[in-house]
Amino acid sequence: MDRKWYFTFSVSVLYATIWFFSPENASGAFFNSLNIFRKVLPAFIGVGGLMFLLNLFIQRKDIKEKLSGREGSRAWLTAILSGIISSGPIYVWYPLLSQMKESGVSNSLISVFLYNRAVKLPLLPVLISYMGLRFTVVLTVLMVVFSVLQGMVFRLVPDLPEVSPGS
């Protein structure tokens, strides 16, 4: 079996075990998963489309030049804003990020992007209704600040070598 399937296989074994003891919980969990899959599918297709456009119009060396090495405040701002406006679960973004990392985008910018995904613009009204406006503003600002701090920590750490999905 391909190494990539180990995790899914382990979860399937877990399902089978639960099915043995409690079939209704196993089927409930499976239907939850189907619902999640349905919700995630459009985002996954969207990310696929973005990857296609990225591969079509932007060469690896362009990404490397713009987002790595000499990364300035513009690159960091791009990472923050694209993290904030990106939608869908985090894992649907992994293929695109993996590809960008292979193209030379630094760990700091990827971590900034991932952290800013925590700021969910469309969900802010919900957060305000449960936790209040002041809380929402403070938390949002802190999250953006900490995303930059995390990026800076990654900048200090020597570049972490492995990238290689599928290698």
Binding site: D2, Y15, A29, N32, S33, I36, Y91, V92, P165
Partner: peptide, 18 residues
């Protein structure tokens, strides 16, 4: 790129359902 990460995403979705 998508094929490489798909098995993992399926696993994550199944675990989230659980």
């Amino acid at each position: 790129g998508l094929k490489n990460i798909l098995p993992m995403i399926i696993g994550v979705i199944l675990l989230t359902g659980l």
